[in-house]
């Protein structure tokens, strides 16, 4: 199951960003000869498993999801066709989905750019390091390796308002530390700190792209008397812009499905467990400030078992994600050689 795991975006971004402009070898000159039956069979055997997977785990569920979104379905009875009722509830009635969508949007418009900016900043610092480059790179990359659940548990403890080391330190300087994960207005920024701490995955991509910028361009610019700012603006940025775009898109897609960090932070910060405190009571703590769109979809689908409604939420998520992907494909022109 693919997850919002940021590590997964490392090679994605790198590979795509660097390969998109030229994919010459994929299309060798027209092979003049016909393939033999044997060769056809071997190629068929190579693609048969993914082809089944494509239908069973992608195309079928996509279509079935659309159908379910028009039904009242709880897995116990058969789906009952209710037309647009789910969408009506989603857009005009659901008291929590608006807040959940806004929280997700917060992560899209704040978390993604801040993570990218800090990654770029640190990557720029690291490009100048000749000595111990590997050491520094590893040091800043390591937090990205820590399992997200572990890092969230750790952060919530560190930022515990009463007993956590961060507020203890602040108190030593005479500062009355805030409530962090227990304050609805600070819980998302607290996760932002975590996101920046874990920015290593994006940072290594930027670092590689920066090191890949041809040196002679800088040298030529220096001869022309360009300032550091001008060099960054007119040489560095254009060279790494494909990487920036791809990382922005994968970042946005990951932010749209932001789940694990927020869910675990809510339940750890809440500190409340018990007999009937089901996940629907724990998610979003404090005051729904960490309830993201995908969490609410999870609660509606798999706690309340309103699968038809969850399917409608998935359709909306699909539309948004597809729009973001379309932007990427258009801008990057990834398939120009193929399509037209």
């Amino acid at each position: 199951m693919p997850d919002a795991n940021p590590i997964a975006t490392v090679p994605r971004a790198r590979a795509a960003a660097h390969h998109t402009p030229n994919t010459p070898e994929a299309h060798p000159k027209r092979a003049g000869r016909r393939r033999t039956l044997r060769s056809r069979l071997s190629i068929g055997s190579m693609v048969i498993l993914p082809l089944i997977g494509l239908v069973a785990f992608f195309l079928y569920p996509l279509c079935a999801n659309l159908y379910y979104s028009f039904t009242n379905y709880d897995l116990v009875g058969s789906p009952k066709w209710i037309g647009l009722r789910n969408y009506d509830y989603l857009f005009t009635q659901d008291p929590r989905v608006g807040g959940a969508a806004r929280n997700t949007l917060w992560f899209v418009v704040i978390l993604v750019p801040v993570r990218m900016a800090s990654s770029l900043g640190i990557a720029l610092l690291l490009t100048r390091r000749k000595r111990a480059a590997g050491f520094w790179r590893t040091l800043f990359y390591l937090p990205a390796l820590v399992p997200p659940v572990a890092s969230v548990v750790g952060f919530v403890f560190l930022f515990n308002p009463g007993t956590g080391p961060i507020n203890t330190l602040l108190r030593k300087f005479g500062i009355d530390g805030p409530l962090w994960f227990n304050d609805p207005s600070l819980s998302k920024p607290s996760l932002l700190l975590l996101g920046v701490w874990m920015m290593g995955d994006v940072m290594v991509i930027f670092l590689a792209a920066l090191l890949d910028v041809p040196k002679d361009q800088y040298e030529a610019a220096e001869l022309d008397g360009a300032s550091a700012r001008q060099k960054f603006r007119f040489i560095t940025l254009p060279n790494i812009s494909p990487v920036l775009l791809f990382s922005a898109v994968t970042g946005v897609i990951a932010a749209l499905q932001y789940f694990t960090e927020a869910a675990v932070a809510s339940s750890v910060a809440n500190g409340k467990t018990g007999i009937d405190a089901g996940p629907d009571r724990l998610l979003g703590y404090p005051n729904d400030s960490l309830l993201t769109y995908t969490q609410w979809m999870y609660v509606q689908g798999f706690n309340s078992f309103q699968l038809g409604y969850a399917a409608a939420m998935a359709v909306v998520l699909f539309v948004v994600a597809a729009a973001v992907i379309a932007v990427l494909l258009r801008r990057a022109g990834m398939f120009q050689q193929k399509g037209a």
Partner: peptide, 24 residues
């Protein structure tokens, strides 16, 4: 748009939706 909707994809799409509805 650099990605025109490939024609065979449409036909396959119709087939798949029928298949999905049946399976569902």
């Amino acid at each position: 748009n650099p990605i025109p909707p490939p024609r065979p994809l449409r036909r396959a799409g119709a087939l798949l939706i029928a298949l999905a509805a049946g399976a569902t």
